[in-house]
């Protein structure tokens, strides 16, 4: 029971890091980016390839995954995404599904369709017993790392100059421009960081989730749930939603069958969205 809770929290934390970039682009900037998972996949494959082909140690792969995905995000934002900000949701959906398809096809073509895994360093393998609860070392590592990231993000958004400029830019881009805030640059940097975090999440998640070319489509719904159910007014909501989703998913698959577990999650999502279209944790308006 406690182990399931623990695994669920680890999974939820991982989901948060994977999805928090989307929480900003979709939640704050109101851009429906279904291709968010592609950046996570880029991070995952970066790790797999670096470890397999160049024998780079796991810990060094994590920053590499972040940087590569962030650069990829920055490039795409500057060349393509920024033209789509003001467009209808339908156009954004088409655009980002198109990107996902291209990413899936290209990955499949160059790297093969089979699922890839990595070998963790020995010190992250195995379990220890704490107060009678079996705790996976790697999951504990994820919880600590992701917890620190979540806290850092919250502080960065609420306390730094960049954070307040971002919030101003999101609130009303025209007014923000009038105040001399470089809205385009801010969006680009934000997008890049969000993509980088997704890449980091992909790298961390390779061991737990496995990675294959269809990763962006398989997890798309989970990322969307985190953001829409969590609400779009900040990252605290998505964080709580990630934890709930992670715990519900692990527990559901353990206590029910894997099919019924999914069923429960989707039904809960629909109910929440119908009753509270602004999300579960959004401030009431």
């Amino acid at each position: 029971m406690a182990t399931i809770l623990f695994d669920g929290v680890a999974y939820g934390m991982l989901l948060f890091v994977l999805a928090c970039g989307l929480a900003v682009t979709l939640g704050l900037m109101n851009f429906v980016n279904l291709a968010h998972g592609a950046f996570a996949m880029a991070g995952g494959y970066t790790t797999v390839l670096l470890m397999d082909r160049l024998n780079v140690p796991f810990l060094a792969c994590l920053p590499a995954a972040f940087v590569l995905s962030a650069v990829l995000g920055l490039l795409l934002e500057r060349t393509l995404y920024r033209h789509m900000y003001g467009r209808s949701h339908l156009d954004q959906v088409l655009f980002s599904i198109g990107l996902v398809f291209m990413a899936v096809a290209a990955t499949d073509y160059f790297l093969g369709s089979s699922q890839r895994n990595i070998h963790l360093p020995p010190w992250l393998q195995g379990r220890v017993e704490v107060l009678g609860v079996a705790i996976g070392l790697y999951r504990a590592f994820i919880i600590v790392l992701c917890g620190v990231l979540a806290l850092g993000l919250q502080l960065a958004l609420m306390r730094t100059r960049f954070g307040s400029r971002l919030r101003a830019a999101v609130d009303d881009a025209r007014v923000a421009r009038g105040l001399g805030i470089p809205v385009g640059t801010i969006f680009a940097v934000t997008f890049a960081v969000g993509s980088g975090l997704a890449g980091l999440g992909g790298a961390l998640g390779t061991e737990l989730l496995g990675i294959d070319p269809y990763f962006p489509l398989k997890f798309m719904i989970y990322f969307l749930i985190v953001v829409t159910v969590g609400g779009t007014s900040g990252i605290a909501g998505p964080f709580l939603a990630s934890l709930l989703l992670g715990i519900a998913d692990v527990a559901g698959k353990y206590y029910l069958s894997s099919a019924l577990g999914g069923f429960v999650i989707y039904v809960v999502m629909i109910v929440v969205l119908v009753l509270r279209p602004q999300g579960l944790f959004a401030r009431a308006r």
């Binding site: 719904i221 749930i225 999914g262 069923f263 989707y266 999502m269 629909i270 969205l273 279209p277």
Partner: peptide, 23 residues
């Protein structure tokens, strides 16, 4: 609801049916 809610709810509907058919 907004486009986004509709998008998610319809997506969720199809997933729910898929899970039911699978189960």
């Amino acid at each position: 609801g907004s486009d986004l809610t509709r998008l998610m709810v319809t997506l969720g509907m199809a997933l729910v049916l898929h899970e039911i058919a699978n189960a």
